[in-house]
Every structure is written in C-alpha cells, then in structure tokens.
Amino acid sequence: MRSILASLLISVFLLGCTGQQQKTAEVKQLSPTEFKDQRMSTKAVLLDVRTPEEFAMGHLEGASNADYRGGEFALEMKNWDKNKIYYLYCASGNRSGKAAELMKEAGFKHIYNVGGFNALKEAGLPTE
C-alpha cells in the first residue's frame, strides 16, 4: 500500500512539473501584403538577413542588416532583446526562415518571417 501511494505521489509531482514548462514561441509567416498591413511599433525590429552586398543593392526602409550566412548571426543575436518583435526577410524567405528558427531556439518570443525582398518591394513597401 505504501509503495502504491509513493508511486502515485511521484506521478502527480512529475505531471505537475511538466505542466509548468514554458511554451516555446512559434515563428509566424506573413505574406508581403499581411506585413504591409501591420503597423510596426517602436518595439519592432526589421532584419534583412541577406549578405551586406545584397543589402547595399537595396533593402526595406528602416531595415538593419544581420547577415545569416556570414557566420556572425548567432553571436549578434545574443545581444538582442528577446521580448521585442522581429520581422525577418531575405531574398526568397529561405534564409529568413532558418534565421527565425535559430532565434526561436534561442528563446525569442515574437518572430515573423515576411519572405523575400522582391515580393515585399512589389507589394509596395518602401525601400532604400
């Protein structure tokens, strides 16, 4: 009887502990039109994860460059505020998707992959 009671208490304790685990954030996908319709707040960060050469050829107005392929992205993101909202884009949406997943794994809470630069430009978003 005592061992059954002990097993029951351990089971209840373990189930209680797993129920308190923090839920991980999800990377949200936005189309260029959906992104255009959103109002970016001052807490939001727009990241172009293309190479510096691609960024220099044109980028969305207000974007910062954080080269995903350059090898420094993972180091740079350690200094970023995990509670801010991040919108990421690249040439096609592939690199920004990978960068967003890396940020998710690091504990960032609000991450949006908004796709490729040309599609964003064609949707009428301002560029520099």
Score class of each variant (00 low, 15 high):
Thr42Tyr: 02
Arg39Ser: 03
His59Ile: 02
Lys82Thr: 11
Cys17Asn: 11
Tyr68Thr: 06
Met40Thr: 04
Lys43Thr: 10
Leu120Asp: 06
Phe55Asp: 00
Lys23Asp: 06
Met103Ile: 07
Ser3Tyr: 13
Gly71Leu: 00
Ala63Met: 04
Tyr112Asp: 06
Ser31Glu: 06
Leu9Ser: 14
Lys109Cys: 02
Leu5His: 12
Asn83Leu: 14
Arg69Leu: 15
Leu47Ile: 00
Glu61Gln: 11
Tyr112Thr: 01
Lys84Phe: 02
Met40Lys: 02
Ala6Val: 15
Lys84Thr: 04
Pro126Ala: 10
Arg95Trp: 04
Gln22Phe: 06
Glu53His: 13
Ala44Pro: 01
Ala123His: 05
Gly115Pro: 08
Leu46Gly: 02
Met103Ser: 04
Ser64Phe: 08
Asp81Tyr: 11
Met103Thr: 05
Phe35Gly: 00
Ala25Trp: 01
Gly58Val: 05
Leu75Pro: 01
Cys90Leu: 05
Lys98Glu: 13
Asp67Pro: 07
Gly116Pro: 04
Gln38Asp: 04
Gly93Arg: 05
Leu15Arg: 08
Gly116Tyr: 09
Gln29Asn: 12
Leu102Val: 13
Cys17Ser: 13
Phe73Gly: 01
Ile4Glu: 12
Leu9Lys: 14
Asn83Tyr: 11
Tyr89Met: 08
Asn65Ser: 08
Asn113Met: 00
Glu122Thr: 10
Asn94Pro: 09
Leu30Asp: 01
Leu15Ser: 11
Glu34Asn: 03
Glu128Trp: 09
Val27Ile: 10
Gln21Arg: 13
Val12Pro: 11
Leu8Met: 15
Ser11Pro: 08
Thr51Trp: 09
Ile4Gly: 11
Ala74Met: 12
Leu46Asn: 07
Gln21Tyr: 01
Glu72Gln: 08
His110Ser: 04
Gly97Asn: 08
Asn94Val: 15
Lys84Arg: 15
Asn79Gln: 14
Ser11Met: 14
Cys90Pro: 08
Phe13Met: 15
Tyr86Phe: 07
Glu76Lys: 14
His59Gln: 00
Gly97Lys: 08
Phe117Val: 02
Met77Asp: 08
Lys104Cys: 10
Phe108Pro: 07
Glu53Pro: 10
Val45Gln: 06
Leu75Asn: 12
Gln38Tyr: 00
Lys104Asn: 10
Ala99Gln: 09
Leu120Cys: 05
Glu61Gly: 01
Gln38Ala: 06
Ser92Val: 15
Gly58Phe: 06
Gly124Ala: 07
Asp67Ile: 05
Ser7Lys: 11
Asn113Asp: 10
Glu105Arg: 14
